[in-house]
Amino acid sequence: MKIARRTLLTMSAAIVGLAFTNVASSAADYTLRVHTLVKSPHPYNDMADAFKKEVEEKSAGRIAVKVFDSGQLGQDPAVIGELGFGTIDVMISTVSNSVPVIPQFSIFTMPYLFDSMESVLDTVGPGTPVHAHFAKIYETNGAGMKLLALGASGTRNMSTAEKPVTSPDDLAGLKMRTPPSPMDAKTWSAFGMLPVTVAWGELYAAMQTGVAEAMESSLPGYTGSKLYEVAPNLALTAHTIQVNHTSISQRTWDKLPEDLQKVVQDAAVVANAYGVERSIFYDTSLVEKLVKEHGVNVTRPDRAAFIAKVAPMQVELAKELGLSEEYALVKK
C-alpha cells in the first residue's frame, strides 16, 4: 500500500507540475520554438534543454521555450527558411547543413582543423574574432537569422556498410555520403571516394539501399539515429570536430526587449558550453555501448596517415573555395 500511495503521490506531483508548466507557458509574454534535427542522446538536445531551462528561469517566466527535436519541424534547409519568416524561432544544429545559406561555414568541415574538443571554444566561442566574423556575415547575407553562439558537439568518425576502414587506402571507390558542402565533397574526393549528397533525414535509407556505402557523423548522431544498423563498421578517424551553431530568427530577436535579448543571448552561450561537456562525455562512453549492445565493429586507424593525406591541401583547398580569410582566422 505504501508503494501504491507513493506512486500515486508521484503521479499527482507530476500532474501538478505539468499543469503549472502549461499555466506558466500560457502566461508567458513570448514563446520560442526551438528546432533540433537529431534524436537523443545527442548534445543538441541537451543544449536545447539547457537553453530552455536558462531562458525560462532567467526571464522569470516571461519567455516560454518549446523544444522540437528529431526534425519534427522539418529538415535544416526548410527550418532555415522558416527562421527567416519568424515561424520557427531558434535552431541548434551543425554548421555544415547551413552551408547553402552561409558558404563560409564550409571551413569547419575541413578535416583536422582543431587540436581537441577542449580547445574549440577558445577559437569560436563568444568574444573571439571567429564568432564576430560569422555574426557579421549573418547580418549581411539576408537570411533573416542572428547568430547567438558557435560551439562544438563531438568528433566525427567514418562508418561503412560493408568494408571496415583501417587506413586511407580502404576508402577508394566507396560512395561517400556528404552534406551539401563543397569542402566535404572535395575532401573525400581526395581519398578517391565518390561523394553523394544526401540529407541527414534520408541517410539511413541511403545506406540501407546502397545509394551511399560510407558516411561520417558524430557518435551521438550515429547512435541516436541507429545508423549502426546500416553502417556497422565504425572507424574512429576523429577527422573533424563538429562545429554547431545556435541561431535565432531576426524577426523574433527584434520583437524581444533588450533585457530579454540578453537573457536569450546568455542562455545560448551557457548551452553551448554545456554542449561541449556533453559531447566529450558521449565520445568517451558511446563506443563501449555500441560494441556491447549493438555489435558494432570498431577499428582505430592511424590518424597520422589521414592527416598526412589532407594537411598538404588545406591552404590550397581553402583558397580554392574562397575561404582563405576564414582559414586564417581559425588557425590564428
Rank of each mutant, 00 (worst) to 15 (best):
R5Q: 13
M11D: 03
M11Q: 08
A24G: 07
S25F: 00
V34N: 01
T36W: 08
Y44A: 10
N45T: 14
K53R: 15
A60C: 04
Q72S: 09
L83Y: 07
L83F: 10
T87P: 05
V99G: 03
I102V: 15
P111N: 07
D115G: 14
S119H: 13
V120W: 09
D122T: 12
V124G: 03
V130H: 03
T140P: 08
A149C: 06
L150M: 15
G151K: 08
M158N: 08
K163P: 03
P180E: 05
S181F: 06
M183C: 09
A185L: 04
W188C: 01
L194N: 08
T197Y: 05
A199T: 11
M207N: 03
T209S: 15
E213D: 14
M215N: 07
E216L: 14
P220F: 03
L227K: 01
Q242W: 01
V243T: 14
W253V: 01
L260D: 03
V270L: 13
A273Q: 13
G275M: 06
G275S: 05
V276Q: 11
S285P: 00
L286K: 02
L290C: 03
V291W: 00
E293D: 15
H294L: 08
V310N: 12
P312T: 12
V315A: 15
K319T: 10
K319H: 12
